[in-house]
Simulated scan of single mutants.
Amino acid sequence: MLARTQYQLEASDLLTVLALVRAHTLAGAGERLGQDASTVFRSVQRIERGLGQPLFQRSRAGYQPGELAQSIAEHAEQLELALESARAAAQTLPEQVAGRVRITTTDTILHGLVAPALATLRAEHPLIELELHAGNEVANLTRRDADIAVRATRRPPPHLVGRHLGPIRVALYTARSAAGRRHAKLALDQAPWIAPDDALPDHPTVVWRKRHLPRVVPVCRVNSILTVAELVARGLGIGLLPLFLAQARSDLLALGEPIEACQTDLWLLTHTESRHLRRVSAVYGHLAQAIALP
């Protein structure tokens, strides 16, 4: 109890705890802090001794934060925001926007919609640094794993603020090659299918196909919609693809009108505390204007 009342947390302590809460491993926290794992380990031990209680539960799964560690991390996030804002302000003129902005999305949306908008963003704000994360898992904006998310969803998380960018329409495609045209002549339940069943079991295209064509077993199961597009274009089978990805390709042929049941919505999301930062606001506003859905 004596140690707990005497120990005064420093700013570096808060950032150390925050890094380990986010990474769950010493190595991951060290990478975020620019330190080696042993240094992070010694820092955590020192903080826990000073506070007189453990902050993390150690297990084979890594370091799991306790209630106090979570509370410290929340305060550390405010410190992190203040530091980033101060650094950006110190390095730029009043009319300039600078700093790092983390964007998370899926590989399909990144390649089909976000990437085309980045060239004009760089020309408009050359001092902004972009960190892009593409994956099907949703990065935690609350924990500052990302500043902005571009996501396909019908129900965006209520704790985030965002803008509805429009509907993502989906249609069935085959290749324009001879193989693709042969596939187009087959009944839908007889044609070879490419689909992300195991990687995205709840994806609207997977749900629709299983409901309307329950006998179909895909000849190729893949881990992303972007891979579906590549394999379909090579004539390996047919597949359901978003129009924003398929319409720009000359090697894909639509097999009908968009399927309404496969449609979902595209949202541009950020955290309430991040949206007022100049660099986040600049990127958010640019993406809102530049991303256009067919």
Rank of each mutant, 00 (worst) to 15 (best):
3 A>K: 09
7 Y>N: 01
11 A>I: 05
11 A>S: 07
13 D>F: 09
13 D>H: 11
14 L>S: 10
15 L>A: 08
18 L>H: 05
20 L>D: 13
21 V>Y: 08
22 R>H: 07
24 H>Y: 07
25 T>G: 06
26 L>K: 14
26 L>P: 10
28 G>A: 13
32 R>A: 15
36 D>V: 15
37 A>L: 12
38 S>P: 02
47 I>C: 06
47 I>Q: 06
50 G>A: 09
54 P>I: 00
54 P>Y: 04
57 Q>C: 02
61 A>R: 13
65 P>F: 13
68 L>E: 12
70 Q>K: 10
70 Q>D: 07
73 A>Y: 03
74 E>I: 14
76 A>T: 11
78 Q>S: 05
78 Q>H: 02
80 E>I: 00
81 L>W: 00
85 S>Q: 07
87 R>G: 08
88 A>F: 01
89 A>S: 10
89 A>D: 13
90 A>M: 12
93 L>R: 15
94 P>D: 07
95 E>K: 00
96 Q>I: 00
96 Q>N: 02
97 V>L: 11
100 R>M: 12
103 I>A: 01
109 I>Y: 01
112 G>C: 08
115 A>I: 04
122 R>Y: 05
127 L>N: 13
129 E>M: 04
130 L>S: 12
135 G>V: 01
136 N>R: 02
139 A>P: 00
141 L>C: 04
146 A>V: 00
146 A>Q: 01
147 D>Q: 05
151 R>A: 08
162 G>E: 04
162 G>N: 05
165 L>I: 01
165 L>H: 02
165 L>K: 01
166 G>S: 03
166 G>L: 10
171 A>R: 13
173 Y>A: 06
174 T>V: 12
175 A>L: 06
177 S>A: 08
177 S>H: 12
177 S>V: 06
177 S>L: 09
178 A>Q: 14
178 A>S: 14
178 A>T: 15
182 R>D: 15
184 A>L: 14
192 P>W: 09
193 W>T: 04
193 W>E: 01
198 D>F: 08
199 A>I: 06
201 P>L: 09
204 P>E: 10
213 L>K: 13
213 L>F: 15
215 R>M: 00
221 R>G: 15
222 V>L: 14
224 S>R: 11
224 S>Q: 11
227 T>F: 02
236 L>T: 01
236 L>S: 08
237 G>S: 10
238 I>K: 12
242 P>Y: 06
243 L>E: 15
244 F>V: 06
245 L>C: 09
246 A>I: 06
249 R>L: 08
249 R>P: 09
258 P>C: 10
259 I>D: 05
261 A>I: 07
264 T>A: 02
266 L>F: 04
268 L>V: 03
273 E>Q: 14
276 H>F: 05
277 L>G: 00
279 R>N: 03
280 V>N: 09
285 G>D: 09
286 H>S: 07
286 H>Y: 04
286 H>T: 04
287 L>E: 00
288 A>L: 06
290 A>V: 01
290 A>L: 02
291 I>L: 03
